[in-house]
Write a protein that binds this DNA or RNA. Structure first.
Lengths: 333, 333
DNA sequence: ATCAATAATGTACGCGCGTTCATTTTCTCA
DNA sequence: TGAGAAAATGAACGCGCGTACATTATTGAT
């Protein structure tokens, strides 16, 4: 095919290649001849062969954590992130290869590189567990180009793109106190994610000294169901006066908690203050609307992609957060 | 690399290849030798080279419609679909290549095949507009392996995986009538999608003869905002008695409508009945919870993937739907 | 044990491109 | 106009694998 284009244009195959690679110096006249011949014959370079020849797949892998069945994409967090990744990839001519970490046959991400399926990798939902950490350290030692998101792992700080979770929850807690709530409690995400802890720390930062060690912490797992399940415990805190507000580690737990407390006769604003984290769609859909920390996961994803594509190095600062005040946190007097 | 494995195992390169291809007959003894040698040397076949050699990329393309910035993945519809696609792809050893139709440089999907970037393609959010139809017809004529979802295009019925939108809205409307609502109106999605019309037809199917041509239709565009914007119009229908219930073409419009009507003093169940379509997360999060048609987009996606991967042919029936009755449609007496 | 039939393995080549190096053309400045 | 330098092009090769075909080892029936 390329040969015929070459013949038709009266040049050699190498020249055709050069024209389509755009890199080399080709005389404008020749270039036009080749392009014309190619257009007439409907020739398009075989991308697969190019990738093979230049030993680069041009793919940016996106590793999703294994989540059973339908709920794979069901969180605001992920699709927001994917949007940013997608934009960056598009902008730099990379294709996105969607990968899923399987539960059993965890062959490791290194394989994907060695197979040359991907040139760079973004890990979503990485955890700081021993085997995963070890694998990533190895990947790093091999000089692979990857990044992960909202997770700290010792020795891999230069690979982690993070939003400022700590400050986010600080803002939320501070806001509740300003609203006149006296004893906020924290609804924590699952262990294994550093951001669960960071968010708690931010919450503590905002506590006045007399509450620093005194506030209650409820343990959830970032799902709405877990928030719902904590309603009984939360109601007890409200009843006994040990808490009159909640900073939830994410929106979904906040929403579950709100629904659960409603069933028990507690209404936000009237009986307690509530904030979430993520500024998800749900926060706007709720009744009352949910005050939430907005973290631009879109930007986080974009940044991670730029790093994995090696067009940018790790920024020094964590990505900024903001507080979106809606109804659930306000204190009705 | 392969050569060294061959030497170490005392066989030829071809045999190594055969072992890793798993297809050919290789003596068990030899197989073990090769595998052992490969393990010792850390050899893994270069996937890129294999793809090149066998002229198959092994990738299933998923074409997303271009949606500005962050909202790319923000609909329940898409991520549910992606979950199903992902499962099917995984099961058949295909990788998912995420593609996005760009607004300007619409070079056509055919290119992706000719470039050998993909072996099969799923189009999400295809529309029945002239240029798109033409392009897909060409793709079909070229014998490419693709499928699209929830859209009918003349001459491409064998490529379309559909859920039974019509029956879904029939069930919703029927349910509202059974609840005692007298004059349901329909909130329609944008033109250009056949499912917008199908859903309206299903709604009509359920109408008693005296209402068949008489019911009101509000025109939205599947966004929550459009539902919100229709609240004034809807309130007028309620006020004048031209409608006392709404079947919305999807959940987001239903949610917007509910919020808008609330601002105008109308409450569902008390003042009107409401149903959505998609059974999205939002339907559960609402207050009141939203009665909605559940359509298993997960299954739709899975089916589309199986067809695009040519492991299954088009089913004769549309995929089934169900009605999930929650609070918004109930008539409080 | 012999020979044919079959299974197992080896040899050789090409997939479509990028790229190095040699060669030719064009340009520059005397 | 004629070198020499620089730009443009061509010829040849190899990337790592799969595979058709040739070759050798194994089996089974006589």
């Amino acid at each position: 095919m390329r040969k015929q284009v070459a013949e038709r244009a009266g040049v050699s195959e190498a020249t055709v290649s050069r024209v389509f690679s755009e890199s080399d110096a080709v005389k404008e006249k020749t270039r036009e001849k080749v392009l014309k011949a190619a257009a007439e014959l409907g020739y398009v370079p075989n991308e697969l062969a190019r990738q093979f020849a230049r030993k680069r797949s041009g793919n940016l892998g996106v590793m999703l954590p294994f989540v059973p069945k339908a709920k794979l994409f069901s969180t605001y967090y992920f699709y927001e992130m994917m949007g940013g990744i997608s934009e960056a990839a598009q902008q730099h001519g990379a294709d996105l290869l969607l990968l899923q970490r399987m539960p059993g046959e965890d062959r490791g991400c290194g394989l994907l590189f060695r197979q040359q399926k991907i040139d760079g990798l973004i890990l979503l939902g990485a955890r700081d567990i021993a085997e995963e950490r070890e694998e990533l350290l190895k990947l790093d030692a091999e000089g692979r180009s990857f990044a992960f998101v909202n997770q700290r792992i010792d020795g891999l700080e230069h690979r982690a793109v993070e939003t400022d979770h700590r400050r986010g929850c600080f803002l939320a807690a501070e806001h509740l106190l300003q609203q006149g709530w006296r004893r906020p409690a924290f609804v924590k995400g699952p262990p294994g994610f550093s951001n669960s802890l960071d968010r708690l720390l931010g919450f503590r930062d905002a506590m006045p000294d007399e509450l620093k060690g005194e506030h209650a912490v409820l343990q959830g797992n970032y799902s709405r169901t877990s928030g719902l399940a904590l309603a009984g415990e939360a109601a007890e805190l409200l009843r006994s006066g040990q808490a009159d507000a909640f900073v939830a580690g994410n929106d979904r737990m906040a929403i579950g908690l709100l629904q659960g407390l409603r069933q028990l006769g507690y209404e936000s604003s009237r009986d307690y203050g509530l904030t979430g984290f993520d500024d998800s769609d749900g926060a706007r859909l709720m009744e009352p609307t949910l005050t939430s920390v907005s973290a631009s996961f879109y930007e986080t994803g974009r940044m991670a992609a730029l790093i994995a594509l090696q067009v940018q190095s790790m920024p020094v600062d964590k990505l900024p957060v903001g507080l979106v005040v809606r109804e659930s946190s306000l204190k009705r007097t």
